[in-house]
Design a protein around this nucleic acid. Structure first.
Lengths: 150, 150
DNA sequence: GTAGGTCAGTTCTGATTCAGAACCAAGTCG
DNA sequence: CGACTTGGTTCTGAATCAGAACTGACCTAC
């Protein structure tokens, strides 16, 4: 994005890190367990220079760590940090949206509750009312970091 | 993305619709109530030809509808469809991730449970166990649309 | 009734970014 | 030794994007 100002919106802030054609797919692979340069490259069929740049950026921003996994020859792998792991609600949401609206009802992958094996759902929760709800019951208001005038 | 095959992954399918630098920001604005070409353009400071193309694409894919709101002169507005509204879990997840990991603790906007005004949380739910859980309790398995061999 | 303004675009041009291929370096295997 | 693997870098042409100017339909004020 051309603007130099700090984004006044966390979605924009997130997209400054994730918002190009490849980054989210790289992270999806990382969630699936892909860790090595060549494996990302083959799976995504991405140009090497672009992959190099994207991995570097994700490491710089703290989403991935680059770890030596082999001394001789020196080989590195890219792993999700806690910050990276925290993206899972976003990736799950994108996946479920694609399942629901872009596939013909046949989801390629199903996510399940690990301990019981049943499909999971994603919901908004209010701990005050102790209930779950949907997007139609959301309101928004300025937070502590809101600009004075908007 | 360069590949012509149908994506074997719903995240990729979603990104085929949403995965460029502007689309998600356009949709964020739409969720905020922006509906008109000029309002999108001013708010995002996006080049006109790019906005034209993105809106057209979102309408084609069914995420937005283009509705006449003024007969003379003919003026159109862009509104979220049900498909578009269904993206809110994804946008909320991106926003919360930015709040948590990219801001210094001061969220510009806070989302609240409409009926009580308290901040909301986003969780995974298992209706079988009737409990909420986090990304560390998710497993995945091939769904009905999985390719034969993978 | 015409000058200026708004809204929703389209058309053009130059700057960025991307894809694809080739190349490179360090090490391993046969 | 020569081939192969991994993890890159460098180059070049293609696609995309930004920015500005232009268009056209209509509206309002003078």
């Amino acid at each position: 994005m051309g603007n130099l100002e700090a984004p006044d919106c966390s979605i924009q802030a997130s997209l400054d890190v994730l918002g190009d054609r490849w980054t989210i797919l790289i992270l999806r692979d990382a969630f699936r367990g892909v860790r090595r340069f060549e494996d990302f490259r083959k799976d995504l069929d991405i140009a090497r220079p672009v992959l190099t740049e994207r991995l570097k950026r994700l490491v710089d921003r703290g989403v991935l760590v680059r770890q030596l996994y082999c001394e001789r020859p020196p080989r590195y792998e890219y792993r999700l940090t806690e910050m990276g792991m925290a993206l899972s609600p976003a990736l799950v949401a994108l996946m479920r949206w694609g399942d629901r609206w872009l596939s013909d009802g046949d989801a390629p992958t199903v996510l399940v509750h690990d301990s019981c094996g049943h499909p999971l759902d994603q919901q908004f929760v209010c701990w005050e009312c102790d209930e779950t709800f949907t997007q139609y019951d959301i309101a928004s208001r300025p937070g502590p970091g809101a600009s004075a005038v908007t």
